[in-house]
Simulated scan of single mutants.
Amino acid sequence: MAVPQSPSGAANVARAWIGFALLIAAHFGVRPLISARVDVDFALIAILFSAVRMRPGLAAVTGFLVGLALDAMAPGSFGAHALALTLIGYGASWLKAVFFADHVGLTGLFVFLGKWVLDIALTLLTGVSSGISLVIALLVWSPLSAALTAAVAVLLLVMFRPLYRPQTL
């Protein structure tokens, strides 16, 4: 009886990069086509899924670089995405042992909280809302967007598990 062999470390790294690149491409290619008040943040999913494979410093650098790319398209609030995604990448990598087990429900909760924290940070850093519109944005639209992002992340995790999780036997 042949024992199935696990893929090499290089194969896992290649799959992780392919998954990351596909999510970033979806963020810049698909997301603008379906833009609405409640949208999916593919870049955040990419950072969270990759941060679980990295040390905190590298995850922070990844978040910073993706944030810079997002900030380049919004010069009025330059630096907000870079700061927020740096902190989220670092925190996700640091907390990976606690939250990012291979449990799909915990992954959905983690992505929901990550997206909500990102939206809160961006809203407060950019100062685009105030008064009742700030409250509505943070307590209605942001949680709905976080829920949609978490649902898409869970769907992607279930459908494309080899790209977003290391294979274990």
Rank of each mutant, 00 (worst) to 15 (best):
L70A: 05
N12R: 10
A14V: 13
V13Q: 05
G114C: 13
K96F: 13
G67V: 12
I47M: 07
L157R: 15
S145Y: 08
V30F: 15
T168Y: 11
F110N: 09
T168S: 04
I18G: 00
T149W: 14
F28E: 02
F64W: 10
Y164G: 01
P32A: 14
V154I: 07
S6L: 14
L70S: 00
G29L: 07
P75G: 06
A92T: 14
V98F: 12
V117R: 04
S93F: 11
A14T: 13
V61A: 15
A97V: 12
V158E: 04
P56E: 06
H27E: 11
F100E: 05
V13S: 06
V13N: 03
G63A: 12
F64A: 13
F42P: 01
V52R: 15
M73E: 11
D119G: 11
V13Y: 09
D39W: 00
P32H: 15
S142I: 08
A69I: 11
P7F: 15
A146H: 12
P4R: 14
A51E: 04
P75K: 10
A150Y: 11
P56G: 04
S130L: 15
W116G: 05
L109Q: 03
L106N: 07
N12E: 09
M159I: 11
F20Y: 06
A151Q: 05
R37K: 13
A25N: 01
V98E: 10
A11M: 07
V154A: 04
M73S: 09
A97L: 06
L48Q: 08
G29Y: 14
K115G: 01
D39A: 04
L169N: 01
G63N: 08
G19T: 06
L134G: 03
G9C: 01
L122W: 15
W141V: 15
A60M: 12
L157N: 07
V104E: 02
G9S: 09
L44V: 04
V152M: 07
G19A: 05
M54A: 03
A151W: 11
A21F: 13
D71S: 07
L22C: 11
L134E: 10
S50V: 09
Y164F: 15
G108T: 10
H103R: 12
H27K: 07
G131Q: 08
L109K: 04
G29T: 09
A121M: 13
T62L: 12
L125Q: 05
A59T: 13
S77G: 06
G105P: 01
R165V: 13
A92Y: 10
Y164Q: 01
